[in-house]
Every structure is written in structure tokens, then in C-alpha cells.
């Protein structure tokens, strides 16, 4: 599929799902928040978020058959880079009060100023990280 078309299709799925969750369950969709609640290890706290995460995992596994190129890129960075980046992404999202889904999708879709600011900082500091690591080419 054309890259722009698949991006567009993905965006429609993501926006549509976030809207559905907001209207059907009354909550904004935020993956780092869901994971945080899951890590409370309390069923009463995690609730339906566990079902959401289970659905994601099932879809992740099935992508291997239906659209393998979407997820097959190997993570080639050194293990310490992977570990450090993952800690920053997980910890940073909690400290910032949300990640790409909570801030950049639902927060911006709610016209929250803090989420617009968060998204700009995500992208600018991400760009600096890419630059410092020598670009992508």
C-alpha cells in the first residue's frame, strides 16, 4: 500500500478508536496511563484497561500474518540504547502526564494547551536526539 494512504488509514483507525473509547466508556485513550494502571496489580484499578491491552496484544500477534511488514523491522540499536530509551519513554510519559496517545491524540483533539505544548516538546527533543545520534541516513 502507498505510504501516505496507509498513514491516513492508520490515522483514521487511531482517531476512530480513541473517539469510540471516549464515547462508549467515557475515558480518553492513553497507553502509558493504561500500563500504569495495569502495573498497580489491582483488578479494581486496572479494570477494562486490561481488556484493552489484551486486545492490543492479540492484534500485535495477528499482524505477523495479516501485515508483517508493519512490525517486522528489527531493533538494531545496542541493548543499552534500547533499555535507556525505553526507560525514558516510559518514565517520561508518566512525568509528562501522558504519551503520544494521551497528549498528542486525545489531548490535542480536546484542544488542551498542555497537550499541544507536550507534543511540540516531544517532537523537538526527539529531533534533537536523532540529530545527536547522527541522523537517519
Amino acid at each position: 500500500m502507498n505510504d501516505y494512504l496507509s498513514a491516513l488509514a492508520g490515522g483514521v483507525l487511531l482517531g476512530g478508536t480513541a473517539l469510540f473509547l471516549r464515547l462508549a466508556l467515557g475515558y480518553p485513550l492513553g497507553i502509558s496511563g493504561f500500563l500504569s494502571k495495569a502495573l498497580s496489580f489491582k483488578l479494581t484499578v486496572a479494570g477494562w484497561r486490561l481488556s484493552f491491552l489484551a486486545g492490543m496484544l492479540l492484534a500485535a500477534l495477528s499482524l505477523n500474518w495479516i501485515y508483517p511488514s508493519a512490525i517486522s523491522e528489527p531493533l538494531s540499536a545496542d541493548l543499552w540504547v534500547l533499555g535507556l530509551a525505553a526507560l525514558l519513554v516510559g518514565g517520561g510519559a508518566r512525568i509528562a502526564g501522558g504519551c503520544t496517545s494521551g497528549h498528542s491524540l486525545c489531548g490535542m483533539g480536546n484542544l488542551d494547551l498542555d497537550s499541544v505544548v507536550a507534543t511540540v516538546i516531544f517532537i523537538v527533543s526527539g529531533a534533537v536526539a536523532v540529530l545527536v545520534m547522527g541522523g537517519t541516513s
Binding site: 516510559g90 509528562a96 517532537i123
Partner: peptide, 11 residues
């Protein structure tokens, strides 16, 4: 938090 997240995302 935003800066830490962005750095990890870019890495």
C-alpha cells in the same frame, strides 16, 4: 517529563 520522553522516542 516531555523532554525525557522525546529523547527516548527519538533514540
Amino acid at each position: 517529563g516531555c523532554i525525557l520522553f522525546g529523547i527516548g522516542w527519538g533514540m
